[in-house]
């Protein structure tokens, strides 16, 4: 019967949407696997070891080991965010892929859910490849760092949901530059990634801890790669879990509002 507009209609059909994107990804895997392999090597060498020479240690941790978990966190953020903004927008607006899908028994809710799951999967794939490189360099603790694998999917889903909200409200593909440069880029720099949050002014610290998703993700990955835990770790896990669920449903709702006319 008629359902509330707020409750998504979800079935296993979402997985067929996810599978379509998976198939496309592996058709062009040569180019797709290049960034997560090359990027960490360049950053580790240039910033970790190069810049690290001058920095030395942060809180008793060699600089290269301080930024290694941040690189994983940034990779989780970027892969899901850019997949569910620019790539999803291209599929929705230019390729009309969503239109083709909803002409089948699939509901739009499932199409969007499949896109979000795929964004999270991309985070998982990229951070896994990166983790292998970091393990190769010996800059992360084992076996605890392996928990990053399942965690990357959860955190990826969070960024996918946030991204899909922007995709749902953007007037055109160029406007997606606003969240990219005004939200993602500052977050990349001010979330305790390349320097500890403590050096920021008090107000900014509170803002970063309370509202920036990447801060929470870096906290978790760094706790895992350095095997150091504080109560703040649990706060971050909780924060991410709640916001992931929230953005999952909100983004589906916003997309329905945009596309079902």
């Amino acid at each position: 019967m008629a359902q509330s507009v707020y409750i998504p209609r979800l079935t296993r059909g979402a997985l067929t949407v996810w599978r379509r994107n998976w198939d496309v990804f592996f058709k062009t895997y040569q180019v797709n696997f290049l960034p997560p392999l090359v990027e960490p090597i360049l950053y580790l060498l240039a910033i970790g070891y190069g810049l690290g020479m001058f920095v030395g240690e942060i809180d008793g941790v060699p600089y290269v080991e301080f930024i290694a978990p941040a690189m994983v966190a940034i990779s989780i953020m970027n892969s899901a965010f850019f997949e569910c903004t620019y790539s999803s927008f291209v599929r929705m607006y230019y390729q009309k892929t969503f239109d083709a899908m909803i002409a089948t028994p699939l509901a739009l809710d499932e199409v969007i859910a499949g896109e979000l799951l795929w964004g999270a999967t991309r985070s998982f794939i990229y951070s896994s490849v990166m983790l292998v490189v970091l393990i190769g360099f010996g800059v992360v603790d084992l076996p605890l760092s392996l928990i990053i694998l399942p965690f990357s999917f959860l955190a990826g889903l969070l960024f996918a949901g946030i991204a899909m909200c922007f995709t749902a409200i953007t007037p055109g593909i160029d406007s997606l530059n606003y969240p990219s440069f005004l939200f993602i880029t500052p977050m990349l720099l001010f979330s305790g990634t390349f320097f500890p949050l403590d050096v920021l002014p008090g107000g900014l610290q509170i803002f970063a801890r309370g509202f920036l998703p990447l801060t929470q993700v870096v906290t978790v990955t760094r706790s895992l790669t350095l095997s150091t835990f504080s109560p703040y770790f649990l706060y971050s896990i909780g924060w991410i879990s709640i916001l992931t669920v929230l953005f999952f449903f909100v983004s589906i709702h916003l997309m329905k509002r945009r596309l079902i006319v």
Partner: peptide, 22 residues
């Protein structure tokens, strides 16, 4: 509007589509 999956072949297009119908 012709909204085929440009990344796929003819066969793959129909196969991917058949999955949407289960």
């Amino acid at each position: 509007e012709t909204n085929l999956d440009t990344e796929f072949t003819c066969f793959e297009n129909l196969l991917v589509y058949s999955r949407y119908f289960g």
